[in-house]
Amino acid sequence: MSAPIRISQDLLFRTINDRDDAITDYAAGNLSPARYALMSCAVELNPDLAESAMFQTELAACLINEIRPVPLSPLLIGETLAKLSYREADEVQNVAANDHVSRQTRVAPRPLRDLMGGTGLRDIQWKSLIPGMAIHDVLGNRRTEEGDRLYLLKAKGGMRMPEHSHNGEEWTLILNGAYTVEGRTFRRGDLHIEDETKTHSPTIEEGEDCICLVMTEGPLVMKSWLPKLIQKVVGI
């Protein structure tokens, strides 16, 4: 007897703008730390993305066998064994059960909280950008080696973001609230990737604040003078 196998119509999760390569590069380990962190969070929030990422991770693990193995130094295993810590026989392993329960309900996904030293979104310091908009750097204030930067962006419900384009790619993961751009609405768990060719000006949905995790490659290109000025000061 064969159990029914669920094969969905579209077997691969499609990112907006047909950017499945982001999932492949995530699985293969080809992403910069900022992009990798953003994808780790996206996988946590988005089951379709998680499924696709898992399959490709399995593929990557399988393809390790095609790479020439390199013998270990003779003492490495022994040294490692000497470093192991042992627990008492009656010590109960405490797998953080409450973390599991709260995973879906907390705004910040676990990989993000880990990056912020365990801090949740409630406790962070926001830097005001323009009225109604604030940012918080996640991966430092300076650029990483690849020129990628990771930060949180908070925008008030109902506002329209300043029109901007990019010198490079912009990856956005929506953590809270929603925004619409060119008739498309993005919500919690959606991954929105824009390249350098587009100028856009998202509108935040009425109601709660929209909080996003954003990776930008190169500075944003603001269209009007006020954001340009503030950009100089805040430095995104």
Binding site: G140, R142, T144
Partner: peptide, 16 residues
């Protein structure tokens, strides 16, 4: 790969 390495204790592994 970056200039401003923060407290290593805070920079935990992204544990998945």
């Amino acid at each position: 790969g970056r200039m401003d390495v923060r407290d290593p204790e805070l920079m935990k592994v992204i544990a998945d």
